[in-house]
């Protein structure tokens, strides 16, 4: 049982448009069922890292490799990566006018099932799962009658990201500051949702600035990302060190 779901080797990535290098040689391995946390100062490259994993094409990988379930991830499109089991909860989710959350999720779940050779869910089967998950994460179903994310508060958007994660049941969930801007109840709900999904087949990479999320989710590993490089890796004790000394001691 020493399988790695994600293997990143010497990853360098630049902004496609300008050629500016943001990630300058990242090595990171995540094992099946593990939960990793990434912390680091603003602008260190945390979001860039998770977006490069998700396949955002405004970044260009200039060297290194990423393997997901032993497959070369860099050959896959954004949507293929998702259907393979990668999920990114966005730091800033998009508002999509005219697109209903239900319709959007149905299409997403069906696309994934189709790729796996499973039949589409009937409206009824889907609705049941949909409603159950809404309840679990405590999203008001009236909210979901609007256009996706349109007029959602910051916290509501974050909950909705977690809701989508629950619907898509990824093998690797990347959470980019999902805990920012959450009230205490929402924070607990997000923590519970992650903990409920944790199992031997699912791994998490969680970007956060705050220790308080880690009161709910106990990570296996903590990494500190500074200037596009992992400056240090360790266990939860690292978080306390950051709280006490700040990032300067790692630079």
């Amino acid at each position: 049982m020493d399988n790695k779901i994600l293997e990143i080797k010497n990853l360098k990535a630049l902004v496609s448009e300008t050629g500016e290098e943001i990630l300058s040689g990242i090595d990171l391995e995540i094992g099946d069922g593990e939960t990793h946390v990434i912390m680091g100062p603003n602008g260190g490259g945390k979001s860039t890292l998770v977006n490069v994993i998700a396949g955002r094409d405004s970044y260009e990988v200039s060297s290194g490799s990423i393997k997901f379930k032993s497959k070369n991830l860099l050959n896959m499109n954004i949507d293929e990566r998702s259907r393979e089991g990668i999920f990114l909860a966005f730091q800033y989710p998009s508002e999509i006018p005219g697109v209903r959350p239900w319709q959007f999720m149905k299409a997403a779940v069906d696309a994934k099932r189709k790729a796996n050779g499973d039949p589409e869910l009937s409206v009824r089967e889907f609705s049941k799962i949909y409603d159950d998950n809404l309840k679990k994460i405590n999203i008001n179903s009236d909210l979901m009658k609007r256009s996706l994310n349109e007029g959602f508060s910051g916290g509501e958007k974050k909950r909705n990201e977690v809701f989508q994660m629950m619907m898509l049941e990824p093998n690797l969930a990347l959470l980019d500051e999902t805990d920012s801007g959450l009230d205490v109840d929402a924070l607990k709900a997000v923590g519970d949702a992650v903990n409920n999904l944790r199992d031997s087949k699912r791994s998490f990479l969680i970007v956060t600035h705050y220790q308080r999320l880690l009161d709910h989710i106990k990570p296996d590993f903590v990494h500190i990302l500074i200037n596009g490089k992992i400056a240090e890796s360790g266990n939860s004790d690292l978080v306390k060190k950051i709280e006490n000394d700040g990032y300067e001691s790692f630079a």
Binding site: G55, F90, I96, G98, Q103, F104, A115
Partner: peptide
Amino acid sequence: VDENTLYYMMSRGLKKETATRMLVRGFVDE
């Protein structure tokens, strides 16, 4: 069509054409 939005939708597993069509449909539906 907004690139960020398209990226967001594709990151949920939707093909580019599907996502685009959904976006246009949303635009028109109003």
